[in-house]
Design a protein around this nucleic acid. Sequence first.
DNA 1: CGTTACGTTCAAAATATATTGAACGCAATG
DNA 2: CATTGCGTTCAATATATTTTGAACGTAACG
Lengths: 183, 183
Amino acid sequence: MLAKSVFTAIVPRLVFRVTKDVEEVRRRFISVAGHTTQSLGMGRSVGQIFAHVYFSREPQSLDDITEALGVSKGGASMCVRQLAQWGAVRQVWVKGDRKDYYEACDDFGRIVRRALLDAIGSRMERTDNLLAEAENLLGNAANGGKGKDPDMVFVRKRIRNLRKFRDRAQWIWEHSVLRLLRK
Amino acid sequence: MLAKSVFTAIVPRLVFRVTKDVEEVRRRFISVAGHTTQSLGMGRSVGQIFAHVYFSREPQSLDDITEALGVSKGGASMCVRQLAQWGAVRQVWVKGDRKDYYEACDDFGRIVRRALLDAIGSRMERTDNLLAEAENLLGNAANGGKGKDPDMVFVRKRIRNLRKFRDRAQWIWEHSVLRLLRK
DNA sequence: CGTTACGTTCAAAATATATTGAACGCAATG
DNA sequence: CATTGCGTTCAATATATTTTGAACGTAACG
């Protein structure tokens, strides 16, 4: 405590100012990251925690996180696991300490790719299943002569268009987005 | 009423079966669309309403929608406006009727493009502002010699990486995703 | 003009989602 | 082997978001 007082008394003002700026930048990023993940429907904590770890030079323990952000330990635990699953954060061992420490990974390409896969992949598949089910139930283009019910004709056409777009979307997804994010 | 009874009594079973199947497919799509938009954080009604209109041969009024889906008129009004803004739905006039009618637009490329622009565009910009603010506050690479505070050096490096990824993401966004969705 | 049939708005209610924190299990430590 | 310090779980709670529906403005109609 004494040492710190002496320190703040003698260091040049510049260093002090600089430290304040760094803190300010950290706070701003944590805030924006939190709002961003919240508006994406993933909760505020995930973004805040990632930003905090990302801008921390030292690996952070759950306790560090709860203290820095004021979130509960349980929540921190869950968010950190989520982040680790996306490869946004990795666990590092600090010798002589039983706690788990985490540091941020800086490969956003991979992080975003995994997060998107997590968010989009299953939805794509479900849509595909639904389309297949519908095509199966209503018959595909081949036996188009059977059902002359105008409603049926109309719905079939819509389903064909939907299928066409879905296939194109998948192409863009696989050959463009995922590939480009891969460094 | 009598007419309908006679009708159902004499038509071949096949037509009956087919109608049932079409209804079933409609229901399934409405359900999945609802869950999808909900899980995307846009509310269930938006998806349901679009699916309903998309699979309706006749233009649909707000009353048609509220009756078909059991949503409130106010909600239907707001959702329809949202959908119209994305170009997912367009207003059509039916002569001799004061109601507004809507029909679905089938150009998913344009729809998704607009929706994504709406969802991503502003976020991109805000991230850009934040980065610019930080770069301005902490100084950019040019005066890297000034602040030797290790914390400052570290944060600067992280911000540089962030900037690098952001620029790449924007490139992918503009030159790949938006372009490819444009037919 | 008064009346009716619309679409829209927005505060309140309902719902969905995220967060908390006490209880738990486990493994390291003395 | 008791104790302590961890991370995890999950029911309860807090929060954010969506949905409702009554009140309102407006334009068409008789």
